[in-house]
Nucleic acid binder design. Structure first.
Lengths: 161, 161
DNA sequence: AACGGAAAGTTGGAATTCCTACGATTTCGC
DNA sequence: GCGAAATCGTAGGAATTCCAACTTTCCGTT
């Protein structure tokens, strides 16, 4: 993630981490959006630690858990990643015994994805980390702002798709 | 995570692009943040096209323009990327004749980065794309929400750093 | 003045991602 | 039915990123 730009209009300058001028980037919604997303991603990764799975893997487990039998293409759409990206990720999760891939009887081109018992167990543990992470984000966003904040993010997603 | 469900309330259900259930995506704010950021990134990349530079390169030009003589380490902090990430990016920009790297006289370990005339020219063109992109984002965010939205993003960045 | 630690930048490896192309399979049109 | 078009998952290549380790240079101690 990473990146964007919005506009420039006022005074060229708000201080940055180390006093460096951000220039036009400071008012760029896109740029700030990128920094926020990456901070969130990094914080989640720190929280789960290397013992667990990275955010991307976690999202996959959550989505499969909520949609048993989902295909890889459907999963890629839900997760917002290209389907080719899921190939190595699912191979890894399958190798770890967390996800099961069976050919769908109705359409032998596709796989029906489900979690194994071990996968559900890992998901349960990760969910605890995620809950703590979310509470931290909620505190930063502010309860009174959360609904509007999420609505704005969704407008961006929908409007730029 | 919690409030996310505030709107839908029970678990696994916010509607997604194709009706897939998002499930107990505890990372909901983080997840949505990621989707929004990536949508913005992709939209900017589409706008500039292959002829121009990608968002990351653009941010580098903006920051150097705003901070002539900045070092690579300072630049990496301002851009929010690891310093090692800038090595190939700056090599590319230098090869294209957009950025100049001179050893700082006061500290020969570091480089003093500046834009060339060609770099400023490219930046000017890219800024037009960025302005258009920003107007699109502004429209999605809504003028009346922009300040609060940016403030929330900055709180996330600061709070998780 | 010399030593040792810290900092700037580079390098190499790993991870993640996208895109394009491709084989296998299904579905649609005639 | 049959062939063409679309879809599913995979493979390969390119880009970006981070981290750890390393070289060179600087600076504070002694």
């Amino acid at each position: 993630m990473s990146q964007l730009y919005a506009e420039t209009d006022h005074a060229p300058t708000l201080a940055k981490p180390d006093g460096v001028r951000l220039g036009a980037l400071d008012e760029f919604v896109g740029f700030t959006l990128r920094l926020a997303q990456e901070a969130s991603f990094a914080a989640f990764a720190r929280r789960t630690g290397e013992a667990s799975l990275r955010p991307g893997r976690f999202a996959i487990l959550v989505l499969i858990d909520a949609n048993p039998g989902i295909s890889q293409t459907e999963l890629s759409a839900a997760a917002g990643r290209d389907k080719s990206t899921l190939t190595p990720a699912l191979a890894d999760l399958e190798r770890r015994g967390l996800v099961e891939r069976r050919r769908a009887p109705s359409d032998r081109r596709s796989y029906a994805l489900t979690l194994t018992d071990a996968g559900r167990e890992v998901l349960r543990t990760l969910s605890e980390h995620a809950a703590a992470h979310d509470r931290q984000l909620d505190a930063l966003v502010g309860e009174e702002n959360k609904a509007a904040f999420l609505a704005t993010l969704r407008r961006i997603v929908a409007g730029l798709s």
